[in-house]
């Protein structure tokens, strides 16, 4: 070690004779060069890796949408997930559009270009109600039609989000997917588990109550509007309940509109049947 530091000192001394390492001109030039190198390097890396990162995010979103509608197979997704998910998405998600608070479709304009997939619901929710745009995805599999809505809310530590799929009647839940950023692992984070999410299937929206679905303390009696919360994850469970209430309230316009359309259709078909 001693030898080594001796050598170091010598090289230092010889260098100092050539340039003053601690001079201010040297320092300025040095820092400029370093900053330029770093900036160039990082920009190259970031631009080169951006497509792969974007793709990851897209695949994740598509997977979540499909999962909500009950259209993914875990085993199949294991091998070549990317291709599987994109194919399934193209196959089942027949339509996706953006609606406003009254349930009317928002038509793309050049100034305000929006499609349901790239819409960031987080940014929409903080806008005044009249300007909020909500994404809707429609999943068609033969006769079966499912409507998928996006959710975003608050947990204990940070944001939670997810998707909810409704059957054609727009009252029965077909499936949900929840995710979170920083809930406590093993407690609040359990909202991502299948056991928790499976409970929501087949539940119906309670239109009288301010909470359409109640996430209650585990162990109590369940009815068609309630699910068991997570023991030890009370605040996250409540967050899920609140998120469903807040978001579904915004979708209400669309839900009512679709319901009345569906009713009209069924009346029409009934009339036709009678005529025949």
């Amino acid at each position: 070690m001693e030898n080594n530091s001796d050598i170091k000192n010598k090289t230092n001394n010889t260098k100092r004779k050539k340039i003053n390492v601690n001079g201010s001109a040297y320092t300025v030039i040095y820092s400029v060069i370093i900053v330029v190198i770093v900036a160039v390097l990082l920009t190259i890396a970031s631009t080169a890796l951006k497509p792969a990162q974007k793709l990851n995010q897209e695949i994740e979103k598509k997977e979540n949408i499909l999962k909500t509608a009950g259209k993914t197979d875990k085993e199949k997704a294991k091998t070549d997930k990317e291709k599987y998910i994109s194919e399934e998405y193209a196959k089942y998600i027949s339509e996706s559009f953006v609606v406003d608070i009254n349930g009317n479709k928002v038509v793309d304009t050049n100034v305000n270009k929006k499609d349901a997939f790239s819409l960031e619901i987080k940014r929409e929710l903080i806008k005044p109600e009249a300007e909020i745009c909500l994404p809707v995805f429609i999943c068609k599999d033969g006769e079966q039609v499912r409507y998928i809505f996006q959710l975003h809310g608050k947990g204990l530590w940070g944001p939670i989000w997810g998707y909810v799929a409704f059957e054609k009647d727009l009252n029965t839940i077909a499936g949900v997917v929840f995710d979170h950023e920083s809930e406590t692992p093993g407690l609040g984070a359990e909202i991502t588990t299948e056991i928790f999410q499976k409970q929501f299937e087949g539940k119906k929206i309670d239109e009288e109550n301010s909470f359409p679905i109640i996430v209650q303390k585990p162990g109590g009696k369940l009815n068609s509007h309630t699910v068991d919360g997570i023991s030890g994850g009370t605040i996250t469970s409540r967050g899920v309940q609140q998120m469903l209430a807040d978001n579904l309230k915004l979708y209400k316009g669309f839900i009512n509109k679709m319901k009345s359309e569906n009713n009209d259709n069924s009346i029409e078909t009934n009339d036709k049947n009678q005529e025949q």
Binding site: N12, V21, Y26, T27, Y30, S31, V38, L41, A45
Partner: peptide, 23 residues
């Protein structure tokens, strides 16, 4: 190590670390 000016040593170190971490 022999070229870094002493007055900006810490910043240069942080810069190198931060760049690697971002990568």
């Amino acid at each position: 190590r022999n070229t870094i000016p002493n007055s900006i040593r810490i910043i240069v170190q942080l810069l190198v670390i931060a760049t690697l971490v971002i990568l």
